[in-house]
Simulated scan of single mutants.
Amino acid sequence: MIRHIVFFTAKEPQNLDAICNGLSLLGTIPHSEHFEVRRNSKVDQISNEVDVVVYAEFADAEALAAYKAHPIYAEATRQVRPLRELRLSADFEAK
């Protein structure tokens, strides 16, 4: 299983709903086994810069690649990119 985690920061706080809505489109792509978009609760004592988290699970690298190649992925990117500042992504194989 591949776990896919992406962190976003908003350029402006008023963009958070639009960012979450745009990222939620990704959950309609059929290749993930689990998909969530959540706002960061910002309770960490050291760092709270991240505004939104995307968490997804994929059966394998091929499913993740198919997800990223899907036209809805491109649409979500088109909607969210102008509203976000930072995007950090990590993909790793779960044991």
Rank of each mutant, 00 (worst) to 15 (best):
L88S: 09
P71C: 10
A63Q: 07
A59D: 00
V54N: 05
S47N: 14
R84Y: 13
T9C: 10
A65V: 01
H34C: 09
A90V: 10
I19Y: 00
I46F: 15
A69D: 10
E62S: 15
A90K: 04
S89F: 08
L25I: 10
E33T: 03
N48P: 04
R81C: 02
K42F: 04
D91S: 08
K42R: 06
R39Y: 02
G22P: 05
Y55N: 08
V6C: 06
E12P: 05
P82E: 11
N40D: 15
A74N: 03
V6M: 06
H4A: 04
V54Y: 01
R84P: 01
I72K: 12
A56L: 00
S89N: 12
R81F: 02
V80H: 02
Y73E: 14
R39N: 03
I5L: 11
T77S: 14
R78K: 07
S41W: 14
A76P: 07
D60L: 03
D60N: 11
Q45K: 02
P71D: 08
K68W: 03
R3S: 03
V54W: 08
H4N: 11
T77F: 14
V37Y: 07
D17Y: 06
H34E: 15
H70M: 12
L26D: 12
E62F: 11
E75H: 06
H70I: 12
R87T: 04
V80W: 04
F35Q: 01
F58H: 08
L86R: 15
I46L: 14
I72N: 10
V54F: 03
M1P: 09
Y73S: 13
R38S: 14
F92T: 00
R78S: 09
